[in-house]
């Protein structure tokens, strides 16, 4: 087993440091996007939940609540999307 690791380590010296950096960048991008999705996930949950409460309380103003809900989702979602863009940026620079 140790032999195997040694072999693997010796073969990994063939990989250029830029490749390692790239791999680290991919790891960072993945973790970063995962972290960026947490907050908007919770936020959209709150927005939609409250919108549904509002619609259930006042079904006659459901149209306004729905429009406002989509707006709120759009603003909240922007954060996740910026995370997504940063993810792509990290992968490609």
């Amino acid at each position: 087993m140790l032999d195997l690791f040694a072999q693997a380590a010796s073969s990994s010296t063939a990989v250029a440091p830029t490749e390692i950096l790239k791999g680290l960048g991919a790891v960072g991008a993945g973790i970063g996007y995962g972290a960026a999705a947490i907050g908007p996930g919770i936020g959209i949950g709150i927005v939609v939940g409250n919108a549904i409460t509002a619609m259930a309380r006042q079904p006659e103003s459901a149209g306004v609540a729905r429009t406002t809900m989509f707006l709120g989702i759009a603003f909240t979602e922007a954060l996740a999307l910026i995370g997504f863009v940063v993810f792509i940026l990290l992968k490609y620079t």
């Binding site: 979602e77 922007a78 999307l81 910026i82 997504f84 863009v85 792509i88």
Partner: peptide
Amino acid sequence: VRLFANMLA
């Protein structure tokens, strides 16, 4: 970015 990222995703 909102439109772009949504559609790309």
